[in-house]
Write a protein that binds this DNA or RNA. Structure first.
Lengths: 97, 97
DNA sequence: ATATTATTTAGATAATTTTCTAAATATCTA
DNA sequence: TAGATATTTAGAAAATTATCTAAATAATAT
């Protein structure tokens, strides 16, 4: 999984809102659906995009599938962005090199 | 400019490479073009996408237009991602709350 | 076993994006 | 002024994406 899929996944507002909702803890597809006015099929596509990008995990519990945030990819993106800014991983903002 | 445009801009590998190249300092469109095998027109579109997203600035100097990295939007994205991770702005990774 | 509920998959359409070639604009130089 | 160079804009074709409805799969409940 590269940045390609991650950024593409993050570029949709519905998907970003899904991630926001998952901050509080795992939610099923149906619980997520209540927060949007799209069909279950559309939500399912968004979830599979997020999963393909590595941004969420899913776990089947009986009739439901619960989705959780996976922050591993976010960390990779954070590091890439910090290196773009020229800031090393542990470096403070206040140094004058 | 919202996250929409920024993430969309970042989702293309050519555009991410442009940002990487600009880390070292300003470059003209022509100088950037040498690093890719696309037409000038395509590059120009990528540059306008990056500019619209607020990720680069441009400055005309005579015959040339020089592009520079603008890290303001990157900071906003970094903050959003850190809040997704549940990490406050100045907070260390090592605390156990 | 049948019906109900939760979710995904298939297939279609409309909108967006990437890229190209060709033409336009702006600046410099001879 | 005419020609060359740097870059953008216009217009079109091909690929990708978001969304929908309808159908399929899987699990639970009666």
């Amino acid at each position: 999984m590269g940045f390609q899929e991650s950024f593409k996944a993050l570029s949709d507002p519905t998907r970003r809102e899904i991630l926001n909702l998952l901050r509080a803890g795992p939610l099923s597809a149906g619980e997520l659906l209540e927060h949007f006015s799209i069909t279950g099929a559309s939500l399912s596509h968004h979830l599979s995009t997020l999963k393909y990008a590595g941004l969420i995990d899913d776990e089947k519990k009986g009739k439901y599938i619960f989705y959780t945030l996976n922050t591993t990819v976010l960390d990779d993106i954070l590091n890439w962005m910090m290196s773009l800014k020229g800031t090393e991983k542990g470096e403070s903002d206040h140094e004058k090199p």
